[in-house]
């Protein structure tokens, strides 16, 4: 999974922080954690909550696991990782239920499903289980931020085109005919495909400039 994509030369903490945002962006480059990305990005608010929840779980479990990396036996490491992640997910799930019950209802089963998000297990297996807590935290922050940005961009585009609103505030003129397809599952696939295409295009240009130097 993520091990193959792991570039080990990005060693320093700042580099790790930046890697998640662009060069190794979890969604756009590594195609990890696609399920929640598509499922809850129909409005910007949903997408932001989901992004924050996932990033919080990633940060918490990365810190705990990298602190315990010497104690966890290799044979049962995956089971131990999953246990730690599931604990943090349960905490986050209960927190959101306590703070914003409406949001909890809107996200439904997708909050507990953060456990099965391959982004989290991938990062922990690739980095947090081998490096110091400081580096693991920076990596988790970078990856989490990259994940939130993508999710928010997707959610904003889908909400704006699908309902003409952003965070529930009407932005487009009355005449605007909402693209209902953007709210449907199909629209999620289309929007993400467009985002990946745009990213590849910009990245392709950046590579050309890099090579010309």
């Amino acid at each position: 999974m993520a091990e193959a994509l792991e570039e080990l030369h990005a060693e320093t903490a700042t580099e790790r922080l930046q890697a998640g945002l662009w060069r190794q962006n979890p969604i756009l480059v590594q195609a990890l954690g696609m399920c929640p990305t598509l499922a809850v990005s129909n409005t910007a608010a949903n997408a932001l909550t989901m992004g924050l929840a996932t990033a919080a779980v990633l940060l918490g479990s990365a810190l705990v696991i990298s602190t315990l990396r010497e104690t966890i036996p290799r044979q049962v490491r995956l089971a131990s990782f999953v246990l730690v992640i599931a604990t943090f997910v349960t905490i986050t799930d209960m927190l959101i239920e306590a703070i914003a019950i409406e949001m909890h209802r809107a996200l439904g089963a997708f909050l507990p499903l953060i456990v099965a998000n391959c982004l989290i297990l991938g990062r922990i297996e690739a980095l947090a289980s081998r490096r110091s807590p400081r580096l693991a935290a920076m990596d988790a922050l970078g990856m989490g931020a990259g994940f939130i940005c993508c999710l928010l961009a997707l959610g904003a585009v889908r909400e704006l085109l699908g309902q003409g609103t952003l965070f529930g505030i009407m932005l487009l003129p009355e005449r605007f005919e909402p693209w209902v397809v953007m709210l449907l599952p199909g629209g999620g696939f289309f929007a993400l495909a467009a985002l990946v295409l745009a990213f590849r295009w910009v990245q392709g240009h950046a590579d050309v400039v890099e090579r010309a130097r």
Binding site: A31, L184, F189, F190, R200
Partner: peptide, 18 residues
């Protein structure tokens, strides 16, 4: 080239979903 792999698969999935 830019569409190879993930992007084209997502587009197709969108059409299938519709």
């Amino acid at each position: 080239d830019a569409a190879r792999g993930v992007a084209i698969t997502l587009l197709l999935a969108g059409i299938l979903s519709l």
